[in-house]
Amino acid sequence: MQLIPNKTFALQTDLGLYCRTGRDQPETSIQEHTFHYRRLVYNIIKDTMKTAFPIARKLIGKKRWKKSVAYFFENHKCETPQIWKLPSEFCEFYEKNPFPFKKEFPFLKELLQYEWLEIDVFMMEDLPVEKFKTTRLSKKDILIPNPEIRILPLQYPVHIKKIKQITQEDKEQYFVSIHRDYYTKQVKFNDLSFALVEMLIRINEEETSIFDLENLFSKYENDTGKTEKVIDTFIDFALRNNLILGFKNN
């Protein structure tokens, strides 16, 4: 028997609610199999979260992690149809909802964001890159950035310190770049100072030469010789780590 559209939608809604909560099992064409839907859907969610957040899961322990995922599954109406994007919604859900261990792990929100961004960057679409050369001719050359990058500001060093060794005394300003290598397509991470972040943002937002970077950095250092040395070191570092791909010769 074919269901009319509004009844079909109602059944889908009821089945989705049942899969999330385990309550009010709807009538389906094969009733004895209905309970399997919830188990299968929940296993997909559970495995996705386990894969996405291995460090966070280890930090809070398997029992609390299991309860957290179940709480999310039962109370969150998923917005994305793509299962790999669901960890992003978990990050938002954690931030907006009460969890009993939030005070115990004040850096967990940032850890979840950090782990999610590794997935986000790895899965992001290929972005267009301007043609570039690997050698520079002068300080007037325009720096060509790797656009497949995210920069995450942090209050805790979740990217550089063993997670169980982080304490309240570590709280200060940190920055980490998460980018996809142009050649290998692997995700890489770099700890950055605020000055380096400012330079990377400038390079990604507008055409920027080495002269421009020296002028930008001059507000941190009055000595011209030291500024030039810092910029040279930064460019070498950025090229080596694939944050800058090359140059456009002017």
Rank of each mutant, 00 (worst) to 15 (best):
L213T: 08
P81I: 09
E221V: 07
L3R: 13
E115N: 08
N222F: 01
N249L: 10
Y94C: 00
E206A: 15
K188T: 12
M199W: 02
I231F: 02
I163H: 05
N75G: 01
V158N: 02
K164H: 09
K67I: 02
I45F: 10
G225F: 05
T224V: 12
K188R: 12
P54L: 07
K133S: 13
E228A: 15
A238P: 08
I151T: 10
N250W: 04
I149M: 13
K188C: 09
I235G: 03
L243I: 13
H179Y: 01
Y114N: 05
F122L: 15
Q155M: 02
E130H: 09
V41K: 03
E169N: 12
Q186E: 15
L127D: 07
P153L: 04
F99E: 01
L192Y: 02
L192F: 03
N97G: 00
T224K: 11
K164C: 07
K140D: 10
F101S: 13
L143N: 00
R57S: 07
L245V: 11
Q82F: 12
T233V: 11
L239I: 12
L152P: 08
M49T: 08
T34I: 10
I119G: 08
G22T: 13
I151L: 04
E74K: 09
K171S: 05
Q173G: 00
I151K: 06
E104T: 09
Y182M: 09
K58H: 10
P128W: 13
P153G: 03
I60Y: 01
F194S: 04
I231T: 11
V187L: 07
E228H: 13
V129F: 09
T227F: 00
Y114Q: 04
E148L: 04
D126I: 14
Y156L: 01
E221Q: 15
L40V: 15
K185Q: 11
L3M: 15
L111F: 02
R38A: 12
I210A: 00
I83G: 05
P145V: 05
E207Y: 07
C19T: 13
H33S: 11
D191L: 12
L17N: 14
V176S: 00
P147S: 07
E130F: 09
T135I: 14
P145H: 01
